[in-house]
Simulated scan of single mutants.
Amino acid sequence: MTHHPANPWVRRSRPQPRPAMRLLCLPHAGGSTSLYRLWKDLLPPEVEPVLVCPPGREDRLDDPLPDGIPELVADLGRAVVPLLDRPWAVFGHSMGATVAHELVLWLLEQGHPAPEHLFVSAREAPQHHHGGSVHLLDDDALAAELIRLGGTAPELLAMPEVRQLVLPAVRGDYRLIETYAAAPAGPVPCPLTALVGAADTELTAEEAAGWEKWTTGPFQLLSFPGGHFYLSESPHALVDVVCRRLLTPA
């Protein structure tokens, strides 16, 4: 995995000068690039995965979290601009889906080309934004919430040293998404696919289907077996779907 010290936001395990497509992959609240660790071996050579690493995790533990989603999006947007010299798409999971939508809008506002596709995973559409107060929980309750969602191994969260590393970013990200205004500037001018786990208790089919409002292009809602972290349970099937949408001519 490579990244330039001047651009700590991205990790490029297979850097290519002229790929057919670059796919930006954004993690969930408190998540890291490990969410997509298998994708580099599942994506075809013509699709270059670009994994986004927000502040507060991995080698960015000391980097401060932004004050809000708009600041996060602007910082990320400036970091990925050099990669938009090739056709690109973006996949965001949970909180990452919200950030992905806002990122596309920010880049368009700055005059950059639209993506070929926007994938929003395990996230309700903005008009159904839940908000919440998870970021106000104490460490025990916050760890319990992570275990309930299924994205973190319970045995890891039982280790004080792991909690000390993981929970600050989790709490910070929950603060960002739970205080998010949920008022995007508008729809995106590209195809949008919403993806959900059939057993995900964090959103309803109606909330996921609401993403259709946020594109002027084709929309599709797809369901996979599993819960909120279905993408870790069915990575091959998911990546196959993503590739078919990116590489099949319209």
Rank of each mutant, 00 (worst) to 15 (best):
P45F: 00
L23N: 08
E46A: 13
P27T: 09
E58W: 08
L35D: 02
R37Y: 05
P70C: 10
M21T: 12
V80M: 05
L42F: 08
D41P: 00
L72Q: 08
D41M: 04
G92M: 06
P70K: 09
D41Q: 13
D85W: 03
L51E: 15
P45A: 15
L84A: 02
L35M: 13
R57V: 11
P27I: 05
G31R: 02
L84R: 02
R18V: 13
P54W: 11
P45T: 03
D59I: 01
R11M: 08
L38I: 00
W9D: 12
P15H: 11
R11L: 14
D63N: 00
V81L: 11
C25A: 14
E46I: 07
R60E: 12
L24V: 06
V50H: 01
E46D: 15
P54D: 07
L65N: 01
L72W: 08
G56R: 09
P70T: 11
C53F: 00
V80E: 05
P54I: 07
G77P: 07
P70G: 09
R37W: 03
L83A: 02
A89M: 10
D62T: 14
W88T: 07
C25D: 04
G68M: 00
W9K: 09
V50S: 01
P27V: 08
L72A: 10
L42Q: 07
A20G: 15
H93S: 11
P64M: 12
